[in-house]
Simulated assay, not measured.
Amino acid sequence: MEMQAAEAARRWLADQGVSQVRDGWVSDEAPDALLTTSQVAHSWAGEVFAEDLDAADQVRLAFGLLDLLNEYWVTCEIRFADESAKGPLPADVLWDGYRRRLEADRDVEAVTYSLWVDWFEDRSTAATAFAEVLGNDIDRVVAGRSEALLRRARRVLECSGPVPWLVKEPTYRTAVQLPALHSALFYGLRASYHDVYGDLEPAAALALLDQLDLPTNTQHLTELRHVLAAGHKNHYRSPRAWDDAVRSCS
């Protein structure tokens, strides 16, 4: 599916006079100027939403461009379109696009970064975004345990630090039933403490941490347990607490 979407995006770019060459991209307007994928994304991704297509097909084309270029800026244009006067975008197509790519067996850093810094850090969208990419499906993940679903769950958990605790805690509590997700849960808990916009409740987070089956030499495990036990919610609210934990645990 993603390959077909990428090829559709490649054909669309060709219609715009942009084509891929061995070392990058070129446009018909300046055939001697080599373009990077970032330049292509910044110059043309927004144009997708000016196409004479219905909104669902615009979203699909944008995700195809993301598959082709693997550039975070494409996700920015998707978010801009969702917030524009013509938005919101069709939610089923939007979140299906995210879910499919989170399940893909390839690099999806642009997708997870988009979730983290755009959808999850924004309190107005965090609950919906988290539910759509994982919360609504966590029971199916634990019951089915398919590699694609586990891959999606791990990626979302690892970047879920900014999601409000009351939103993500039920999903965390369900995910703890599956040892295959314990490492990702640890990263999620650690990010919930360390991210600037990270959110957790120390006692509840510590109770979850104590249920994780992790190697005893897991980096920062002891320090995280120490700060949570001391009642600290976030590194930036108590900047010295982590250093104290490092000294105490060394």
Rank of each mutant, 00 (worst) to 15 (best):
V108D: 07
V108Q: 08
V108T: 14
V108C: 10
V108I: 10
E109Y: 14
E109P: 01
E109M: 14
A110I: 00
V111L: 09
V111E: 09
V111T: 15
V111M: 09
V111H: 07
V111P: 05
T112H: 01
T112D: 04
Y113A: 09
Y113D: 10
Y113E: 11
Y113L: 13
S114L: 02
S114R: 03
S114V: 03
S114C: 04
S114E: 03
L115P: 08
W116Y: 11
W116F: 12
W116M: 12
V117I: 14
D118I: 11
D118F: 09
D118W: 14
D118A: 10
D118N: 15
W119R: 12
W119V: 00
F120W: 13
F120L: 09
F120A: 07
F120I: 04
E121K: 13
E121T: 12
E121D: 10
E121C: 15
E121H: 10
D122R: 12
D122A: 13
R123V: 06
R123D: 11
S124H: 01
S124R: 07
S124I: 02
S124C: 01
T125F: 12
T125P: 04
T125Y: 12
A126F: 05
A126N: 06
A126E: 05
A126W: 01
A126T: 06
A126M: 06
A127V: 05
A127I: 03
A127F: 00
A127D: 14
A127C: 01
T128D: 13
T128S: 11
T128H: 06
T128F: 02
A129N: 08
A129G: 05
F130A: 06
F130R: 08
F130L: 10
F130I: 05
F130N: 05
A131Q: 15
A131T: 11
A131L: 10
A131N: 15
E132C: 09
E132D: 09
E132G: 05
V133G: 06
V133N: 04
V133Q: 06
L134S: 10
L134W: 08
L134D: 10
L134Y: 00
L134V: 13
G135S: 07
G135V: 03
G135Y: 03
N136L: 14
N136V: 08
D137G: 09
D137C: 01
D137P: 01
D137F: 01
D137Q: 11
D137M: 03
